[in-house]
């Protein structure tokens, strides 16, 4: 299976990456990592952490940088690239424990034709 995993710089983003790598190593998935920022953090930093993670896991994956509008760019990448699945972080909780999906995930869930996996 070909998987596009979206990773922002948050702990949840890195967790989604780790889980996607674990699964890919078992199932033989081909993975592309799309990096973007959730807030004001630097895209270079996110990309560097992702490459670091990939190297530590000895896992080869393509890396795509998304500089604006992560939701629609993820869908475009997935459809143009013929991916089977988009994996995204989806475990954020508010201070008092409410599940928060976030704008990127909501946009992708509502608009993608590709199957979407939320990694918690």
């Amino acid at each position: 299976m070909r998987v596009l995993v979206g990773v922002d710089g948050t702990d949840h983003g890195m967790h989604a990456l780790d889980r996607t790598i674990e699964r890919a190593q078992e199932a033989g998935d081909e993975v592309t990592v799309a990096v973007y920022t959730a807030d004001d953090s630097s895209l270079d930093d996110v990309e560097a952490s992702v490459r670091d993670r990939l190297e530590t896991a000895s896992f080869e994956a393509g890396v795509e940088r998304i500089t604006e509008d992560p939701g629609s760019r993820l869908i475009e990448l997935a459809e143009d690239g013929g991916y089977d699945r988009i994996a995204l972080p989806g475990g954020q909780r508010s201070p008092l424990g409410k599940i928060q999906l976030g704008g990127v995930l909501e946009f992708v869930l509502l608009n993608a034709r590709t199957t979407v996996t939320l990694v918690r």
């Binding site: 909780r93 508010s94 008092l96 424990g97 409410k98 599940i99 928060q100």
Partner: peptide, 18 residues
């Protein structure tokens, strides 16, 4: 609403640590 309150006594107690 959005996953709270959790269900089950253990999860409720953990959440009520708030």
């Amino acid at each position: 609403a959005q996953g709270i309150p959790p269900t089950g006594e253990d999860a409720i107690r953990e959440w009520l640590e708030l």
